[in-house]
């Protein structure tokens, strides 16, 4: 069953094919990402109405929420890649782990920093050790752990294996982050949009948020393509196809 379901993916396990696929997708993804990010943020920051309670301060939501949601989305993708890389030993999946980890780490850092900047004027503190904030900080450490472990072995393949295992285990943290605000009492409020109910945000504020969410997702995809391409080139640098590629590029320049 598994064999036939994912057969169509087989060609993309070949580094060369995936390299060219990423190269083709990259300009579209990046162009759309820039467009939606600019649209969502200008709409959210300048044109959506102020909040009845928090005034203009709430507008940081247009950066905070998308980066926080996709810090978890990036982690899930990284863990899925790690799982495929470990079980099926598909090398491009292993390289995808390395490609996604730093992007996810930066998303997490953005979520934490914008959260602190939002917490100071509204709650009255930059940081509090409540379950939501702490589990999101743990997510940052998981990303940093994956990056560090992958580079900690003289034999790259071994490092990736250990890092992949950590990435998979860290998935336990994702439901903890999401449900922390329900399981325990926290200073952080509950979910506004990521729930099976009507979003508790006015439509005039919701639409720019959704556009911004899409923008962060597209940016994540675009940066992953960009980084995966360089990972593929790095690990395949001695292969004939990469040499040919380099020679033809050099030929164009000369």
């Amino acid at each position: 069953m598994w064999g036939s379901m994912f057969r169509w993916l087989d060609p993309y396990a070949k580094p060369e094919t995936l390299y060219h696929l990423c190269g083709r997708l990259l300009p579209y993804l990046m162009g759309l990402a820039v467009f939606t990010l600019v649209l969502g943020n200008i709409w959210g920051l300048a044109f959506s109405p102020a909040d009845y309670q928090q005034g203009d301060s709430y507008r940081i939501i247009y950066i905070h929420v998308p980066s926080a949601i996709w810090s978890m989305g990036a982690y899930s993708s990284m863990a899925i890649a790690a799982f495929i890389g470990l079980v099926w030993q598909i090398r491009v999946a292993q390289w995808a782990v390395l490609a996604i980890a730093p992007i996810g780490a930066v998303y997490t850092a953005i979520a934490l920093i914008t959260g602190a900047a939002w917490g100071k004027p509204m709650w009255g503190t930059w940081w509090v050790w409540d379950a939501r904030l702490t589990s999101e900080l743990v997510l940052l450490f998981l990303y940093l752990g994956v990056i560090a472990l992958a580079g900690a072995f003289s034999e790259a393949a071994r490092g990736i294996k250990v890092a992949s295992l950590l990435a998979i285990v860290g998935v336990v943290n994702l439901p903890i982050i999401h449900f922390s605000v329900e399981w325990w009492n926290t200073l952080h409020q509950g979910a506004t949009i990521t729930k099976f109910a009507k979003p508790s945000i006015d439509p005039s504020m919701l639409w720019p948020l959704l556009v911004s969410l899409l923008g962060f997702a597209l940016l994540l995809a675009a940066l992953t393509c960009l980084r995966l391409r360089s990972q593929i080139l790095m690990f395949e640098q001695h292969r004939p196809w990469v040499r040919q590629l380099v020679e033809s590029k050099n030929g164009e320049q000369n």
Binding site: P49, A50, D51, Y52, Q53, Q54, Y58, I61, M122, W123, G124, T125, V128, L187, Q189, G190, A191, T192, S200, I201, D202, S204, M205
Partner: peptide, 14 residues
């Protein structure tokens, strides 16, 4: 510290 809920809306709507 002040806690706020997850609802956001313009003043007129509130």
């Amino acid at each position: 510290l002040a806690k706020h809920d997850e609802e956001y809306m313009p003043p007129e709507v509130a």
